[in-house]
């Protein structure tokens, strides 16, 4: 029995293959293929802008950019966490027959979703340029909340993939929880009024809201909120710790439950 590290080095090929598979299969048999990862957010942005822009009276030119930035990040989180949640069960054919480090499955599904997400960021850049929201030097700092986003996705993914093996209900429950996350992320409204009110903590303690908020600040060339950055980072690291511990402790039992 070699050490775990050797194991993971040996299977790095498999990791790459699994990521490749996820990307290849996502848009297979559609005519536009990977271009969909850019068109789809663009179309959703238009719909959301029409609906919420008119309803709430936000007619500013930056409102579509505001919506798109938030929605892209929320979509990544919801898709990667859902994919990770199902990853062990979806790969049971392989898990039951050959030995493979099981963490590869949630990690590869998070990674391929993240890569598609990075591609779709091109749309954000194009929309901002068209609408006259020009990036500044500070916009480069956007990479910081994006890294925190990846960490949070990994942590949540590891926890969910472990729980998902033992309790099938989690798939449905998580859908509902994601809805809660979405409404507390201020994707299609401005949060200032809520943040000043008594219930502002609902948003402030949602790590995904902190990430979205900081990412938007970067996009619009403003400074990040340091408290939010620190909180979301610490939360993400903590979730990874919990995720790794839970996964490690239970992965030998997975095979008995799938």
């Amino acid at each position: 029995m070699n050490s775990k590290l050797d194991d993971y080095r040996k299977y790095s090929n498999l990791f790459v293959e699994l990521v490749r598979k996820g990307i290849k299969l996502k848009y297979r048999r559609s005519y536009l293929g990977i271009i969909w990862s850019m068109i789809e957010p663009l179309l959703t942005m238009i719909v959301l802008t029409i609906v919420f822009g008119t309803l709430l009276g936000h007619t500013g030119k930056e409102f579509p950019v505001y919506i798109l930035a938030g929605r892209l990040i929320y979509t990544l989180f919801s898709q990667s966490s859902t994919a990770a949640l199902k990853s062990i069960r979806n790969n049971q054919g392989m898990i039951k027959k050959v030995y493979v480090p099981k963490a590869l499955y949630p990690l590869s599904s998070i990674t391929f979703n993240y890569i598609l997400f990075l591609i779709s960021l091109v749309v954000l850049l194009m929309v901002s340029l068209v609408l006259g929201v020009y990036p500044t030097l500070k916009s480069l700092l956007a990479i910081v909340p994006l890294c925190v986003l990846f960490l949070l996705s990994v942590g949540a993914g590891l926890i969910l993939s472990t729980v998902g093996v033992f309790f099938r209900d989690m798939e449905y429950l998580w859908n509902v929880l994601l809805m809660l996350v979405m409404y507390t992320c201020a994707i299609f409204y401005y949060p200032d009024k809520i943040l000043r009110s008594d219930v502002g903590w609902i948003l402030k303690y949602n790590p995904l809201f902190c990430i979205i908020s900081n990412f938007r600040s970067c996009v619009f060339g403003k400074s990040m909120d340091m408290w939010m950055l620190g909180y979301s980072f610490v939360f993400s690291i903590f979730s990874i710790l919990v995720g790794v511990l839970a996964f490690e402790k239970n992965q030998d039992k997975f095979i008995l439950y799938i």
Binding site: N13, V16, E17, M94, V98
Partner: peptide, 8 residues
């Protein structure tokens, strides 16, 4: 092949 541990 990758499952069996072989490189691309």
């Amino acid at each position: 092949g990758a499952v069996l541990g072989y490189s691309r």
